[in-house]
Nucleic acid binder design. Structure first.
Lengths: 340, 340
DNA sequence: CACGTCACTTAGATCGATCTAAAATGTTTC
DNA sequence: GAAACATTTTAGATCGATCTAAGTGACGTG
């Protein structure tokens, strides 16, 4: 019990076994709650574990059984609250199953992502939840299959051969466009930013399709800087073209936040001078003023679902690949009005 | 090379050795870049590794050497962007040293935290960065010492015997109070929320000391709900007392965001009708309108510093405990004016 | 009383790396 | 040509768990 004795060498199962007058094998059975051991023996062993302050060594166990109880999560970055919420959902579910999450950010760089995947394999992760970096080759999925590593794609996908959890961006776009159109808007811009990936493409395509089916001009894509601070300063991009839009749909929470700020800086009143619709709707969104009408994609729920899928995939690698596409909902608040 | 052969049994160092016509020991030396092996042999082994698609098994290695290359990070939650930024800093530094971060959230619950610490010990983490849950007993530090586990406290501290990295909340408070006082404010409220812990206490004490040294009444502490959505709705608490404050200092980013929204909902103009100062200044802060004057604590830098300290602590457990207290800076923007 | 059954218990091999101590090989030196 | 030395290489034990296959009693039965 006292700290000095234990400090040098960690307490091992063999120590426990000796202390309880049983064999290592029996102690191991107690550890794994096997029904084979007698209740009197079980109690003796459990007491010995407490007495000695025994700590299970998962690493050693993993050498025998093929299960590390570690899963990996790779996201582009963490300062974007959207990914933080995603991660929160992942950690919640994985933690509840007794596993542990290794966290890493790729910075949307393919080489970094490759390095991280290797590192995770070295750690023997049971599986990985991956939000693929922009420009990830689809051949990565073959490599992953080759490695025999269970992987769930989240938010973005590079292959149909791996599980995927995301949101229905196209429908979200349609909801936004339809709502604006119903208010009478015709010149609607889509404010995009960041690298191109499947989620980007789906939003852009969704925007175009929704606009076309309304008979509206789908070509007004305006590209904003990546950094939040720069977006507000670039607000003028909205007005640099011949025909000025009466409404803007934002690519994500960052763009919405930036433009909301930028428009106010220009002295414009959102919802009156220009209508604004956000995308993603992270937790902070409800505290922005003016209240932003926004398409919600539910990052926490996506993270939870991805974690569940990964757990199932690990349990049964032969399962056919599944795609879970969450519904989006349009939260109508106060940033949209009739065009002027 | 082809996927079928390898799928059953993972490629081991022994396979590599055989393929390169050397012993397991030699292959191991190559792996660890020992200068002992001849350059011709080294090349042969490295080629074999590539040919067979060998992946290092850290878990197996860890059984011999006492180093898992895993560190743990425990934070109260992840949806608060403050902690997400902290984590981003941690991951950045730990990742750069070739280690990996296990992430977990305690939900500010002591039992959960205890369970997580145990789980991390089972995984043999080399050390832990811990933001202690509220109401953590200071005896935890003795247990941790007993375990011989390197731990760095971040943002909150429970003991002087462990390393600590945080921000100088007291000085931050003084900066805020001084600034408001210099504008002529005398009735300044401190809007707090959440559980009580060292960082909470330091802010409260800092507020009181700063107010007292200006000869102002330090007793106006107003407690707001924990959830962001509730804060805005509770804004009226500011005006429920006999003498209404002319300025409010916010406990953190969430309170600042909530009150900023709530005040606007009341039809008040921030900076004119009431002055508001934020605390923490996460990345989003620069995009809030009106621009919030705010005390910045630099979460990313704190995370980075904590990670560096942990790495040093792991390298030399005998080091005396250190405390790193980052300076805070007051970012003056537009949410404060003269009292009316 | 021998034998089969039931309920536990255990010895020893095993997972994939590292480490020690010794062996093999090559090079100088006298 | 042998001893001394430097340079590489290796056999085998080891880390702490799990797993297989076999062992030990106790008990009931024909």
């Amino acid at each position: 019990m006292s700290s000095e004795e234990r400090k040098k060498t960690r307490v091992t199962l063999l120590d426990v076994a000796r202390h309880a007058n049983v064999s290592r094998a029996t102690a191991s059975l107690v550890l794994r709650k096997s029904p084979l051991v007698g209740s009197e023996t079980r109690m003796r062993v459990e007491e010995a574990m407490r007495d000695l302050g025994y700590v299970y060594n998962i690493g050693a166990a993993r050498l025998r059984v093929e299960r590390s109880q570690i899963i990996g999560a790779i996201v582009p970055n963490l300062t974007n609250p959207f990914f933080a919420e995603l991660l929160s959902g992942i950690e919640e579910i994985i933690g509840a199953t007794g596993k542990v999450v290794i966290l890493a950010k790729s910075g949307d760089r393919v080489e970094q992502q490759e390095m991280l995947l290797r590192r995770m394999r070295e750690h023997g992760v049971d599986g990985v939840i991956l939000c693929p970096a922009a420009r990830t080759e689809s051949t990565l999925s073959e490599q992953i299959a080759d490695w025999g590593m269970p992987v769930v794609q989240v938010l973005r996908h590079i292959s149909f051969d791996m599980d995927y959890v995301g949101a229905d961006y196209a429908t979200g776009m349609r909801q936004a466009v339809d709502y604006l159109a119903s208010l009478g808007h015709e010149r609607i811009a889509f404010a995009v930013h960041g690298p191109v990936h499947s989620a980007y493409q789906e939003r852009v395509d969704g925007f175009r399709d929704a606009m076309l089916s309304r008979g509206l001009d789908p070509r007004v894509l305006i590209r904003f800087p990546t950094q939040l601070g720069e977006i507000a300063k670039a607000t003028h991009l909205l007005f640099d073209r011949a025909t000025r839009p009466t409404a803007v749909i934002c690519f994500n929470h960052l763009v919405a936040l930036g433009l909301s700020a930028g428009l106010q800086d220009c002295g414009l009143t959102i919802g009156r001078d220009l209508s604004l619709i956000g995308f993603d709707d992270v937790a902070d969104a409800e505290a922005i003023r003016p209240r932003l009408t926004s398409v919600s994609t539910g990052p926490v729920a996506i993270g939870e679902m991805a974690a569940r899928l990964l757990v199932e995939r690990i349990a049964d690698p032969a399962l056919p690949p599944r795609r879970v596409v969450n519904d989006t909902t349009l939260h109508i608040r106060q940033s949209c009005g009739r065009p002027t």
